[in-house]
Design a binder for these strands. Structure first.
Length: 281
DNA sequence: CTTCTCGCCTGAACGC
DNA sequence: TGCGTTCAGGCGAGAA
């Protein structure tokens, strides 16, 4: 389930195989993947003939930056925005490879390779947009800062405005971008804060600790290449490594790594949240 | 305006 | 063995 560290890992792994290539065609075996402009022809018209200039990420979105089409006078740039949701995966397939299972969108490249977007559960989406349309997309425009761009003061202010529990506030992409269930639970444990504490009720020092914990956990996860639970793989087919460093996520009943009391779990903000009753206050 | 709940999808894991 | 149920979970839509 790709969150910020997994999408970052994917973007870094894809870039060398994509940057500099021209998009020569797009096949969309499953039209459900298209969001925004829904028609295959519109997506292809926006993408084909452009050179891939960069592969990046914002929150959990994978962004492919495309240059203007030289054959279109006065043309501007464009962006492909992919959301992997739960089971989205990317890989670059060589020319003779058969189209793989669960392929939802195939981007043909000038070097003969194909960028394959596969997605077992079909929640993932792809959009082809102008940069102006990307900025005007409500979801994109409302995203909060990346964890390392968040300042203690801004975090303080954002949490003070929330009437939800802190777990829900961390998952709220308009507060801080890129955190999902795994990194919310791990960050709350690292900061020793109970996930059901009202966001407003945190002390200033708890808020500082929490932001530092989020930043540290995300950085460690990126360094480890993300976390593989079931489906996530890097574009090279490699599993992440951070699942071996989980302290609490998915470990209900196991001993707390700090105090050895059994970890408990509860449904908070609609998601299973695992924490230590003794260590997290 | 803010917050909450449901539906979208498929496969794995579990109980009987 | 086989069937039914539950769970995973980000986000859009509609309700409260």
């Amino acid at each position: 389930m790709p969150e910020l560290p997994e999408v970052e890992t994917i973007a870094r792994a894809l870039a060398p195989g994509l940057v500099g290539r021209v998009i020569t065609g797009v096949d969309v075996p499953d039209a459900k993947v298209l969001a925004g402009p829904k028609r295959r022809a519109e997506f292809a018209a926006m993408a084909v003939g452009r050179t891939i200039e960069a592969v990046g990420r914002r929150a959990k979105l994978l962004l492919v930056n495309l240059g203007p089409r030289p054959q279109v006078p006065g043309d501007g740039p464009a962006v492909l925005a992919f959301h992997l949701k739960m089971t989205g995966r990317f890989h670059i397939a060589p020319p003779d490879a058969p189209d793989p299972d669960r392929a939802r969108l195939l981007t043909r490249l000038s070097d003969g390779n194909t960028l394959v977007f596969a997605d077992l559960r079909r929640f993932g989406t792809a959009r082809a947009l102008t940069p102006e349309a990307l900025d005007a997309w409500d979801f994109y425009a409302s995203l909060g800062p990346e964890p390392w761009d968040m300042t203690p003061d801004a975090f303080e202010e954002a949490l003070a405005r929330k009437s939800t529990r802190i777990k829900a506030a961390l998952l709220d992409q308009t507060v801080i971008a890129g955190i999902g269930n795994i990194y919310a639970d791990e960050s709350l444990f690292a900061a020793r804060i109970r996930p059901d504490t009202p966001a407003k009720a945190l002390t200033p020092s708890q808020r500082r600790r929490l932001l530092e914990a989020v930043q540290a956990v995300i950085a460690q996860a990126i360094a480890a290449g993300g976390s593989t639970i079931r489906d996530y793989r890097t574009p090279d087919g490699v599993e992440g490594g951070f699942q071996n460093h989980f302290q609490v996520y998915g470990k209900s009943g196991d001993p707390c790594p700090a105090c050895a009391a059994p970890l408990t779990h509860a449904k908070i903000a609609g998601r299973t949240s695992t924490y230590c009753r003794k260590c997290q206050k």
